[in-house]
Amino acid sequence: MIARFDYIAAVILFSIGLYALVVKPNLIKKLIGLNIIETSVYLFLIASGDVRLGIYTNQWAASNVIDNPQRAVQGLEPMINPIPSALVLTAIVVSVCVTAIALSVVVKLYQHYGTLDAREIASLKG
């Protein structure tokens, strides 16, 4: 349970974000929920590429990753997987784009309908 704490935190964040995305009628709150979901996905991806020293051996725990990059390059020291981190960097930028466009659409919706409530907007016409 403790060893998988990052995954569990990601799942809880995902549930909170999905709750906000589905239940809340306010469009801004829906966007906040979407961002929380994205954050949980980042957490899950980075945790899946992480190195946790000392889970298995004491000798592994005693090794230091950062102080000796030469040994890490030679494969003698653990290094984290760089690919999830790189993908998350890409995903953050895409999330910023999605949030910006969605916010501008919300601004236009508010200016047109005069409300941010999704139920009212769905019930109104034109």
Partner: peptide
């Protein structure tokens, strides 16, 4: 999620290279 390998386990598919 509890059925996955723990965080930092070398058997994870996202893990890089070090094998204890």
């Amino acid at each position: 999620v509890l059925h996955l390998y723990p965080v930092g386990d070398p058997r994870l598919p996202g893990y890089a290279d070090f094998i204890p």
